[in-house]
Nucleic acid binder design. Sequence first.
DNA 1: GCAAAAGTGTTTCCACTACACCCATGG
DNA 2: CCATGGGTGTAGTGGAAACACTTTTGC
Lengths: 233, 233
Amino acid sequence: MSTPCHPNRTQRLPHLSVDNIVFGIIDGKLNVLIAEYNEGDAKGKKGLLGGWIGIEEDIDDAAKRLVSAITGEQDFHMEQLRAFGAPDRFHLDRVITIAYYTLVRPENYSFHAGFTADDVRWYPADGLPTLIYDHNQLVDAALEQLKRKIRFEPIGFNLLPEKFTLRQLLEVYEAILGIKLDKPNFRRKILKMNLLVDCKEKQKGVTHRAANYYRFDPVVYEKLCEHGFNFEF
Amino acid sequence: MSTPCHPNRTQRLPHLSVDNIVFGIIDGKLNVLIAEYNEGDAKGKKGLLGGWIGIEEDIDDAAKRLVSAITGEQDFHMEQLRAFGAPDRFHLDRVITIAYYTLVRPENYSFHAGFTADDVRWYPADGLPTLIYDHNQLVDAALEQLKRKIRFEPIGFNLLPEKFTLRQLLEVYEAILGIKLDKPNFRRKILKMNLLVDCKEKQKGVTHRAANYYRFDPVVYEKLCEHGFNFEF
DNA sequence: GCAAAAGTGTTTCCACTACACCCATGG
DNA sequence: CCATGGGTGTAGTGGAAACACTTTTGC
């Protein structure tokens, strides 16, 4: 619940916190960013990136701040999940938390020791340790939401580098949905949407036929959204 | 922001409120329950059912309490939408609100004058008056969520009486989605899901062929959920 | 019989599936 | 040449869209 860069106690809203479930793909597997707290009442324990809300701070900004402090980036896909407010979710005080989830590209940066007040590292989404408070429950809810959302919006692209192969994209879907997909059919379906732009560039140094690189086209996406479309696989 | 049955000021959580967007179908059209406040700083103005959260109260319970106070019922479909927390959304103080939406069956009850501290009445969802604070924005977000959700879960049934005709169900979908549907195709699709149980009972006193009554089967629904299914029309 | 809405049948089309097959590259 | 993964072809299936048609009821 404590965090780097948090407003000091007198400047924060009481009884309220934000927690951010940060997802990233590592070696084709879905991972979650977990902190080991170095201060506060949860010192030595593991949990989500979390913090307080400044007295004049937008709640979305508070949630973003947590991620920026770790990655140094400002630009990532983040959405509010919902508020969690069971009276007994935090034993020392009544605290309602507003949970967010974020999709990042882990290959863009590495975490330096001492970069923040807490140690952060990736854990596979299907092999998380026991977290403080109700944080395991928050992760479960975020995973569920991610699975639902990926079926109707192309949020999967936010987990990949700008240029990616169709196999990488397929693996994102497989990792999140937890199912095997048929490669040829996936390929045809995603290409027919015209959401991908051919980079005219191929993999190098691979020991098999080089795959083509594609990138996501946000303009086409806007148009498609008008009519509504379907990402189910 | 003030409400009937709210905990008094010393017992509530500061800087936090709940607001509930209550939907009901009236004459085949989607309506929203709007209060005209009789007390507090918003006296005389219109807005959503809202209130405070007791210091030991679950946030879901706080949101339910608002609806029960009006309808007298305990059993209705309610879900959290999300938290709204722009610093300037309420001019007098910093208040973050947790928004819920609820589906009710208006034919089950009528509102008595004096039943609550506020006057409440239905307004068509597409013809709402200007509401206080960001409440119009909350309604828009709830409508959007409702449209999304109805495509994958049979929540539409919560707006209908226990026994209903297929036309009534069709009209719920049309009212929420804002589109015209083909009756024969709708009929086949919904019946093939086996979600409806034939009541072996027909309309009476209508000036045309009497429609059959059906009811929703929650047991079949549970089974269908396992595999995931699709309510898109 | 007529109007109105319930309910059925039928055709067309397109999208998803499953799986066989060919292509490019490094070793 | 082989192994590996990239990428294409194709037959079969099922569901959705469109719309013509038949049935039941009150007046």
